[in-house]
Computed example of a mutant assay.
Amino acid sequence: MDKGLALRDVTITKEGAPLLSVNHDIAPGEVLTVMGPSGVGKSTLLAFITGTLAPDFMATGEVWLDGHNITHAASHQRRVGILFQDDLLFPHLSVGANLAFGLQPGGSAAQRKAKIAEALDEVGLSGFADRDPATLSGGQKARVALMRMLLSEPCGLLLDEPFSRLDAALRAQVRDMVFDRAKVRQLPVLMVTHDADDAQAAGGVIVTLGG
């Protein structure tokens, strides 16, 4: 598979004991959901993909992204975006400055400002560039975190239970927005969750760990 995210015979062990095994291709615009209870290794799998696996884990297998083997690439070179449970916005920076942090280097100040304005408009937050993140609602923070990640121009998207702290109505809204934005950009998505509603909303293949 030239495009998309491929996990080829990925096996992770801890202290010699098998933790998980995954072998799957995720096409552009599709979502693979990995489900399982806490402690089964879902976030550990994401750490392996991003190159941040803790030293007490051992992993074999390969990670391919858009035809490139990124298994041993430096974390910052992998072109993988990730969203966590917490929005992780920088509290000392404005909304616009948070988004600027995600932008690729280069371009004039005017061009960068225009990209930020376009990103905010895409998620219904026009005019929010100068706002303090502390003044935003949970849903607004989630949108800013999503666009900051997308402005880094990733080739794949990882979701580490990013909807779990949102209330039910907001959860569905933000979840749909994330999946829609990923589909528009034709990004392969790997989501880990223990929530059946999230898995169903993703509409893709579901792999269950520890079942």
Rank of each mutant, 00 (worst) to 15 (best):
177 M>V: 00
192 V>L: 07
190 L>I: 11
179 F>Y: 11
189 V>D: 03
182 A>D: 06
181 R>A: 12
171 R>T: 01
189 V>I: 09
176 D>G: 13
168 A>Y: 14
166 L>I: 09
184 V>H: 04
182 A>E: 07
191 M>F: 01
169 A>R: 15
164 S>D: 05
179 F>I: 01
187 L>Q: 03
181 R>Q: 15
184 V>I: 13
172 A>C: 12
163 F>Y: 08
167 D>S: 04
178 V>A: 03
189 V>Q: 01
171 R>F: 00
190 L>G: 10
178 V>C: 06
177 M>W: 02
164 S>K: 09
168 A>I: 13
169 A>K: 15
176 D>Q: 14
185 R>M: 05
182 A>H: 03
176 D>I: 10
172 A>E: 15
165 R>P: 01
164 S>P: 03
187 L>K: 04
180 D>K: 13
181 R>G: 00
185 R>V: 02
172 A>D: 12
190 L>Q: 12
163 F>H: 02
183 K>I: 08
188 P>M: 07
180 D>G: 06
175 R>G: 05
180 D>S: 14
174 V>M: 14
174 V>Y: 08
191 M>L: 11
186 Q>G: 04
181 R>L: 13
182 A>C: 03
169 A>T: 15
185 R>T: 07
174 V>Q: 07
166 L>A: 07
184 V>M: 06
187 L>A: 04
184 V>Y: 00
180 D>P: 03
174 V>L: 10
179 F>K: 04
185 R>W: 04
190 L>H: 12
165 R>H: 14
176 D>M: 11
165 R>V: 09
184 V>K: 07
168 A>W: 11
167 D>C: 08
173 Q>A: 14
180 D>A: 14
189 V>T: 10
173 Q>G: 10
180 D>Y: 11
168 A>M: 13
173 Q>E: 15
168 A>K: 15
173 Q>M: 14
184 V>D: 03
187 L>V: 01
177 M>L: 15
180 D>R: 14
167 D>K: 00
184 V>T: 11
175 R>I: 03
166 L>G: 09
186 Q>T: 10
164 S>G: 10
176 D>Y: 10
164 S>I: 09
163 F>T: 02
166 L>C: 07
176 D>N: 13
176 D>W: 06
186 Q>F: 06
173 Q>R: 15
182 A>F: 04
175 R>N: 07
184 V>A: 11
170 L>H: 05
170 L>K: 06
171 R>C: 00
175 R>S: 09
180 D>C: 09
185 R>S: 03
176 D>C: 08
172 A>R: 15
171 R>L: 01
192 V>E: 07
172 A>V: 14
165 R>I: 08
183 K>C: 11
170 L>Q: 11
182 A>P: 05
192 V>I: 12
180 D>I: 06
164 S>V: 10
191 M>Q: 08
171 R>I: 00
192 V>F: 03
186 Q>C: 10
172 A>L: 14
182 A>N: 02
